[in-house]
Design a protein around this nucleic acid. Structure first.
Lengths: 121, 121
DNA sequence: GTAACCGGTATACTTTGGTATAGTGGTTAC
DNA sequence: GTAACCACTATACCAAAGTATACCGGTTAC
């Protein structure tokens, strides 16, 4: 008989895979993280997400908008300006974002002081 | 003067980027997730992580071992068998994994019942 | 001898994510 | 007229992730 743990495991992994499908790639999480702090225009986002190109920013914002994680508002200004904000649904990624940030901070600590080997659970 | 929120934002993103550097890609999180449930041999992992090829599993396990997230133990059996287990450090990714799984479950719910639009914060 | 086991590896290929650079249109400022 | 603004887009290219398929060595079972 198949190992129960096997089923449990697969049912554990599938939702994780689903989540990763929406936020995979180098830039989606950083973009959402930036917008969770506050809404921004394109240029501001481009400045505040270190290293990203305009092409990637534009592309990823489109994806995130399609997936309902980000809201795009066009203003009738000159020049035209567009504001991006995280949606309510996008905000629901906060636990993921905080968990990543917390782990990243501790990982950084671990890199700086390898002898201490902080363990987080 | 530069927007304070800009600095705050960049300092928020950098540790997230660090974390993503270690666990990016399609398979690392699913592999660690599987091992968090219990340790396994290669074939068992290959069975329990749906869709992965032996080549990718082998490659990603190497990466994870190098990064101290997974421990590899070779047993002097015939045929040779190797056991993979998550390390203490790897276990520290649990908050990330649970956050992803929880979000993935809710996302799935949202896909199945779009009219209800569950919001998680 | 053949097949099976385990834990991979080799090779070629595909797909995807990402980068670099130049350019766009409409408007305003100088 | 040129430059600047904004928010992109076009194009070519690169690198990495990932896949498909065949194969490997050492051992055991039949």
């Amino acid at each position: 008989m198949k190992d129960h743990k096997s089923d449990l495991c697969i049912n554990h992994i599938l939702p994780i895979r689903d989540a990763l499908d929406l936020i995979s790639g180098k830039w989606k999480i950083p973009i959402i993280s930036a917008l969770c702090i506050h809404k921004r225009r394109f240029k501001e986002l481009h400045r505040d997400v270190p290293g990203i190109t305009a092409k990637m920013l534009s592309k990823e914002l489109k994806d995130l908008e399609v997936n309902g994680l980000v809201k795009r508002t066009v203003y009738d200004t000159t020049p035209v300006s567009v504001e991006y904000a995280v949606t309510e649904y996008g905000l629901s990624l906060n636990p993921v974002i905080y968990a990543l940030r917390d782990w990243g901070l501790k990982h950084r600590e671990r890199m700086l002081h390898p002898e201490e080997k902080p363990v987080v659970a």
